[in-house]
């Protein structure tokens, strides 16, 4: 992966929310660099509230960054409503919760055709809807046309949402927790579909998830987000087999199906984007600091006081941590 222009890129992106009541400003996305190349699958992982959905929405132009920019094919995203409409035909968002994403009074056909209608597409609607449904694994598609969401299983509903994204033949899909509400059997089927679309159509995919197994199943690269920032990023094999950031290591250690790793359950208050700690933002919960290891290595001052730079976007494995690279 050399100097090709990414289809989608976040450059030093920041997104803030001004809190209600006494809560201060939430720095939900706090300096993120991320690149998605054509035909690439990137998984963005991290715990609840770390800013994944906010980042995804900002990449789609649904949220305006307070600093930094979103680049599409190397050009800054234009926020004029005409350009945004054209952009959202190319880049589709699949939402976190299929039940919430579907209108209960719209049939499956209407749900999938909606995008075509919004974008005034020229194609034969019936053919396009049937094609999208069967690509999403709802076959024969005609049997599903007139069904309503409550007449579908959870997995079928999720596939309707995916068909709604596919019908526009997007170049990029940003999928937010596409399978977290599904049981293992349906989950595998949907992930296989996403892989197939990448093979057949060269689709690029950014999957937002807290499921590391999903990342292992389909992603080429993994970006680990903690409190608004990407703290480790690189090829899936390296991140998930030889993680270097203590947060990534802790995350992997609690995956129930991981063997041979001592479980590190993080203690301390959950992170709060209105109060981002100084120095390394993970230091109040970092097992290396808590265990005294950082003290022994002489980095504890840096952990508490020296901020880490935003990670570069390029091939390779990047870590935002004061630990010396050879310390594990």
């Amino acid at each position: 992966m050399t100097e090709r222009t990414p289809v989608l890129e976040a450059r030093n992106l920041q997104v803030t929310f001004t809190g209600r009541g006494s809560r201060g400003v939430a720095r939900a996305v706090d300096g993120v660099q991320l690149a998605l190349h054509r035909g690439e699958i990137v998984a963005l992982v991290g715990e609840s509230g770390c800013g994944k959905t906010t980042l995804a929405r900002t990449l789609l132009g649904l949220e305006r960054p307070s600093a930094g920019e979103v680049l599409v094919d190397g050009q800054p995203l234009s926020y004029s409503s005409r350009d945004l409409t054209a952009y959202r035909k190319r880049v589709q968002l699949v939402l976190q919760d299929p039940t919430g994403a579907l209108n209960p009074r719209h049939s499956v056909y209407e749900a999938v055709a909606e995008g075509l209608r919004i974008h005034g597409s020229e194609v034969d609607e019936g053919v396009a809807v049937a094609d999208a449904l069967s690509r999403a694994g709802l076959r024969p598609p005609e049997r599903f046309f007139l069904r309503y969401p409550h007449e579908l299983s959870g997995g079928q509903r999720q596939r309707v949402v995916i068909a709604g994204a596919l019908v526009l033949n997007p170049d990029v899909i940003v999928a937010d927790e596409p399978v977290s509400s599904l049981d293992a059997s349906v989950r595998g089927e949907i992930l296989a579909l996403l892989l197939r679309l990448r093979e057949e159509l060269g689709l690029s995919l950014l999957v937002v998830t807290h499921d590391l197994g999903l990342a292992w199943n389909i992603a080429d690269r993994v970006a680990v987000m903690y409190l608004g920032r990407i703290v480790e990023e690189g090829p899936t094999e390296e991140i998930l087999r030889s993680p270097r950031h203590p947060y990534t290591r802790a995350l992997l250690s609690v995956v129930p199906e991981m063997e041979g790793m001592d479980e590190v359950v993080l203690t301390g208050e959950p992170p709060d984007s209105t109060r981002i700690p100084s120095g390394c933002r993970f230091h109040p919960r970092c097992p290396v600091v808590v265990s005294g290891e950082a003290e022994r290595l002489g980095i504890v001052e840096a952990c508490r006081g020296t901020a880490l730079p935003v990670l570069e976007v390029s091939a390779g494995h990047h870590v935002a941590c004061h630990l010396p690279p050879d310390s594990n």
């Binding site: 059997s185 349906v186 595998g188 992930l191 296989a192 590391l212 094999e237 998930l240 199906e257 991981m258």
Partner: peptide, 25 residues
């Protein structure tokens, strides 16, 4: 077996680019 096999084991090459599912409803 199908349920257990559908859980990807992180780090296990058999699950790399090969999500396991259980066909049918």
């Amino acid at each position: 077996a199908a349920l257990a096999g559908a859980f990807p084991k992180v780090g296990d090459p058999r699950f790399r680019y090969s999500p396991a599912g259980l066909p049918g409803d």
